[in-house]
Amino acid sequence: MPRLDSRILDVASPVSWTDLRLIGSGVQIVQFQSALTKRDYRRLAEALRRHPEVRLRAYGSYDGSITNLDFLEHFPELRRFSADALYHSLTNIEGLRFLPDDVESLTIGQTKKRLSVAPLHRFKNLTHLYLEGQTKDIDVISELQTLQSLTLRSITLPGLSMLHPLHNLRALDLKLGGTKDLSELPNVGRLEYLELWMVKGLSDLSPVADLASLDYLFLQSLRQVDTLPPMNRLTALTRVWLETMKGLTDLSPLRDAPQLRQLALIEMPHLAPDAVKPLIGHPTLTTLRAGLGSKRKNDAVAELLPLASDGDWREPVRL
């Protein structure tokens, strides 16, 4: 059966030589949803050793066969690993001890039982971390000073002071959870990408105004946000994505972003076409992706701002 996504290779025991040969042909992720045999783990590890850029992912475990990460003893040179969508079966992550100290990228998904993330403390070269729902010993993040990209999903922090030591941080995603206090945001790394998605109770975005290095701002489904931050000091900002931001009606702060090139208004049917009038004549804006709920409204926006409707929305600092 052909793969639906040539970048992802699903394997299961017995792992075939055909599968192993595919690694290195554009595959970015090798994944399995049931425990493999020890023989297949070893064969897979040997193939991945020659391609350290490829991520290994354990997920699903719909048969309950993946209960821990001890299989990582067969992958002593693995640099990129994900364990997610294992909510019901994964009971500990102590098997991370088998990974080398210089791991670059880790994803640990949500589990029914809260697991300690203390084992992360020895990964001093970690550049990318994605955590979902794991809050036990969460302060270990402060020790990971090489992080460039951090995603916290379904995790509530009282504030962001814990992230002060992360001087190399370039991308921060806060998804779900209830971290309402962003006052320390300007003291976190040198952020180029900021994503805030469905953060419960978040209403004040004013600290974003002091992110001098910010290139890309992504805001989605923040129900209590009714005002954009001042943008005149955001001299590096070139891309803004606003999606399902039902409380926003005034887009005029975007007019003051001196280098804004691309703007997306996605699933924003509450806006009238006239909402974009403050952007008429913006000196650098070249792209506007309008999603105001109807072709009539989108066409009216295009008449007011006859700009390209698509552009390069790739995110920076993505591993």
Rank of each mutant, 00 (worst) to 15 (best):
D215N: 15
A257S: 07
V208H: 11
V240K: 00
T244H: 11
L254H: 01
R239F: 04
L219T: 03
K246F: 05
T227E: 15
L260D: 07
I266Y: 06
D256W: 01
D226R: 01
E267S: 14
L211K: 02
D210K: 12
E267A: 13
L265A: 05
R223I: 04
T235K: 01
L222C: 06
S221R: 11
L263C: 03
S252L: 07
L248K: 03
L234M: 13
L251P: 11
L217P: 10
L242P: 15
L222R: 02
S213G: 05
Q224D: 15
D250P: 03
R223N: 10
N232H: 13
A212Q: 14
L248N: 05
M231W: 00
P207K: 09
D215A: 08
E267W: 06
N232E: 14
L248G: 01
L248P: 00
M245C: 10
R261S: 14
P258N: 10
V240E: 03
L237Q: 06
D210F: 07
Q220C: 12
K246E: 15
L219F: 04
L219V: 00
L214N: 07
D256C: 01
Q259V: 09
V208T: 12
D256I: 00
D215P: 05
L211N: 10
Y216Q: 13
L248H: 01
K246N: 15
W241Y: 14
L211W: 06
S252V: 05
A236S: 14
A236W: 01
L219Y: 00
M268Y: 01
S206G: 12
S206W: 08
L251G: 08
E243R: 13
L254T: 01
D210T: 12
A212H: 12
E267Q: 14
N232R: 14
S213C: 12
T244A: 15
W241N: 10
P229G: 11
M231Y: 00
P229N: 05
P253R: 00
R261C: 10
S252R: 09
L251S: 10
L234R: 02
M245L: 08
P258C: 09
R255S: 15
F218D: 15
V225N: 07
